[in-house]
Simulated assay, not measured.
Amino acid sequence: MPAAILGILVGWLALNKFYLGYTKEGVIQLVLNIITFGAASIIPFIEGILYLFMSDKQFDDTYVYGKKGWL
């Protein structure tokens, strides 16, 4: 739940990536947001929505244990 809220509300700062421990992906997201003047912040917004609709088990399997960095 915290990763979803971070992705939706402050995804432009890539806080959802850093919260999940994905430092490399977080830095990439920050750079993309700077280069595209914030247009790339749609990615963490979509990820936040996806996180909300996943079950806890599916989220854990995909992002915690599976270490899937993007969508």
Rank of each mutant, 00 (worst) to 15 (best):
T62V: 13
G21Q: 09
G26K: 00
L71I: 15
L71D: 05
I42V: 15
W70M: 11
N16Q: 14
F59M: 09
W70G: 00
F37K: 06
V27E: 01
G21K: 08
I28T: 09
G7P: 08
F18M: 00
Q58G: 07
F18A: 00
A3D: 12
G7A: 03
Y63R: 06
M1W: 11
I42F: 11
A4K: 01
P2F: 05
F18K: 02
T36I: 10
L71R: 09
N16G: 02
Q29K: 00
G38K: 07
L6Q: 00
I42W: 08
M1H: 12
L13E: 06
L20M: 15
L13Q: 09
W70A: 05
F45A: 11
I42C: 10
N16A: 05
I46E: 01
G21R: 11
F53W: 10
A3L: 04
K24N: 07
G11D: 03
I34L: 15
Y65W: 12
Y19E: 04
L15N: 01
L13C: 10
G69A: 12
E47V: 06
K57P: 01
I43P: 06
K57R: 12
V64T: 15
P2W: 10
I5Q: 05
V27P: 00
V64P: 07
K17Y: 11
A39Y: 13
I46A: 07
W70C: 01
Y63L: 03
N16E: 12
L20H: 05
D60I: 13
F18Y: 05
I28M: 08
F59C: 08
K68Q: 14
T23I: 14
I5S: 08
V31L: 15
I49E: 07
I35H: 08
I8G: 01
F53A: 06
D61E: 15
I28A: 08
A4N: 03
A40G: 06
I43N: 03
Y22D: 09
K17N: 13
L50G: 04
G21E: 09
I43K: 01
L71T: 11
L6S: 01
M54H: 11
G11W: 01
A4P: 05
G69E: 12
L50T: 10
L52A: 10
G11K: 00
I5C: 05
K68L: 12
I5R: 02
L52V: 07
Y63M: 04
Y51E: 06
L20G: 02
V64H: 10
D61F: 08
K67T: 12
G66I: 11
K67H: 13
L6C: 03
G7I: 00
S41F: 05
V31I: 15
I49C: 13
